[in-house]
Design a binder for these strands. Sequence first.
RNA 1: GCCUGUGUGGCGGAAUUGGUAGACGCGUACGACUCAAAAUCGUAUAUCCAAAAGAUGUAAGGGUUCGAUUCCCUUCACAGGUACCA
Length: 804
Amino acid sequence: MNTKEIESKWQKYWDDNKSFKVVEDKNKKPYYILVEFPYPSGAGLHVGHVRSYTAQDAMARMMRLKGYNVLYPMGWDAFGAPAEQYAIKNHIHPKEAVKENIKTFKKQMKTLGFSFDWDREFSTTDPEYYKWTQWQFIKFFEKNMAYKAKVNVNWCPNCKTVLSNEDAAGGVCERCGTKVEQKEKEQWMLRMSDYAEDLLKGLDDTNFADRVKLGQINWIGKSTGVELDVNIKDGGKFSIFTTCIETVYGITFFVIAPDGKLIKELMPRVKNKDEVMKYIEETKLKSNMDRTELNKGKTGCLVEGVMAINPINGKEVPIYLGDFVLGDYGTGAVMAVPSHDARDFEYAKVHNIPMLQVIDGDGYDENKAYEKGDYLIDTTAHLINSEEFSGMTIIDAKEKITDKLEKLGIARRVNNYKMRDWVFSRQRFWGEPIPMVNCPKCGWVPVNESDLPVMLPDVAEYEPTDDGESPLAKIESFVNCTCPKCGGKAKRETDTMPNWAGSSWYFLRFMDPHNDQEFASMENMKYWNKVDWYNGGMEHTARHLLYARFWVQFLYNNGLVPHKEMIWTRVSHGMVLGSDNQKMSKSKGNVINPDDIVNEFGADTLRLYEMFMGDYTMDAPWSVDSLRGCRRFLDKVIKLKDKVNEKRGFTESLLAIQNSTIKKIDYDFTNMGYNTIVSSLMILTNKYMEMESITKDDYHLLLVLLNPIAPHITEELNEMIGFSPIVNDTWPVFDPEKIKEDTFEMVVQVNGKVRGKEKVSSNISKEEMEEIAKNIPNVKSYLENHEIVKIIAIPKKLVNIVIK
RNA sequence: GCCUGUGUGGCGGAAUUGGUAGACGCGUACGACUCAAAAUCGUAUAUCCAAAAGAUGUAAGGGUUCGAUUCCCUUCACAGGUACCA
């Protein structure tokens, strides 16, 4: 059989018949299966894409056969730095590069037989799409959720652009690996931190995998504690945030951030100005450098001339500068309790600051800090040296001390979050222009809705400028405009959006992709309800998912989408590694190109292999041998056709095996057990192979069950035995009656070890089981001269005889 | 460091609520077919023992249980995430 011909034949059939086109049909139950739409890179489709697209494709095909109205769409996430870099490098306009790459991707996807509804395809770079991304940005602005602020931003000197905290994780540029610098710039920001609590709570309304939920929770980074006002001797005050108010009596100093506001305010009173200034400057440099390992030492200096007063007992304590305190987290100042915090402990050691123990317990060790992690699990832990709170347990003390401070009006219970506002500006050409106009009279004014989209100008110059301004800033025809409000001369915003913008709501657009009145109609969104299965890489479970959820929650709060969470289940697939067990990369030379595999083995074999290679959620290495085995399996299925006969060689257990296969596959589909779906199909095939002959219906059943994973070959074989296309068929129903067996193999254990097996009737009693068990010769020999202590009989399974 | 995940034959991996560990596939060996090879088919394949019987065995150690790959504790290794977050 010629795989190529068969594959293109059926691909054409599906295309011609629009087999996968889906329309909103109230009579059918909707089911929305989504895979992360790819960034169409110049490298083409990766075998990793094939893994997740095949899995979701199989799910989509199966659900269609079960009668669901399945939405399985595909589109392109084509804005962003990589597309622009690629364009610059290859001297081709990003628009053209994207067009070319999409063509390649789409062709590859078609040769793999993915059942996408191509009528819903779009790219984030289509003006018809980014019009609505801009429209939604204006909503953010109107609701005071978008604002422009001068902030310290992560600046990549190589890419010449601003990076979000997420993009600069680890202190290096996510794209090029260059060390990130700090730079003060005016940026558009989205008030994502306002949604921290809602984003946490919203997780309860989702069915995300636990590890995905945890990723979200960690990123949001909530901590509950107390904000405490601290007076400065001779006037002034500041606040600190702590999660360990129970240690308040142990404060021996305060530490404030060198990049914070407080030190600037205190400056006139500082005696050692030179030293302080020097340290502040050093910190600025340091944040340009690797802040991870080299600078973990507890550097800093005493701020001479000012003393703080511990609010709980009026003791005077010194203030230090230290760069381990961050200016933009909490209040930019901390209370330091060296006896009970490892960082404070180290700092105190370096700077010779006295310590004061205020909690005692069994785990106390004077050579290190007796910390939260230690004393909270220590049942003997209690306060000491803490006036009226001495002797109390930690939990009590926490409450009582907070109460007291609250009554004094100098403390508040607050939550802090690591998650900051979203830096939304990029100084790049290839992104959605931010639809704002700066008018000398009216300030920032959004572009009129009727004037959307603000199109990217068609120019040849799109490389970033050296001064960090967007390339758009050089294009006068773009910049100069009139104010939408007063009609006066004004200037257009030249920053563009990050590529996370377009991907934050694309799943909504798929529900209504051609709507030119709204980003998607409420009617359609209500029909599709939610994304039932969303699959993507683990690397996107923190950021992309968080941005998308934030975006949706904002739309929901403004009545624009039907649910606060629009994604029900999020799963992530494991990576496909090279055959050397390493991540595939050009430099390692271990990259597998799906086209080559399709050419040599066929699309069905590749699909089958990628499903069979291992646990779907885990990484798995590439193996050509295993791939060949999958081809061999398909050849076996082809060969089975010769066994098709009017009658079958009767095998009583066949119906049972068929039905348990259906049951197993149904179960596995809902648990992403794709590898065991394949193995149970192999078992069924082996069973058929053993038989003299099988009927058309037997064969048809196998073909339907295999169809979601290997759709081409199964359609062809199915046609050859005279059935109408599987794509219009129905999924077999599991019949529990058929798997009832009259007998089972009873396992007999003695003291938990298997000593015998016996085929017995399924409906015998426990007593009968025990009796038969005791009389199996081998078992009997173990029982001799021993006392039977007890017998455990599990119906339809085993008997365990416990002897002494 | 912290968080998360993983650890099962020569290899990829199964084992749905604690109940026959190693399904299925790969590889290997032998056999059939062939002048020969490939392909295909058959048989075997955790380890120890000539074989049976048996013993050992799911990273290591301990525990709970009639029974543990599965639950609990301790330790180790690997992978990913995160990093002075108060």
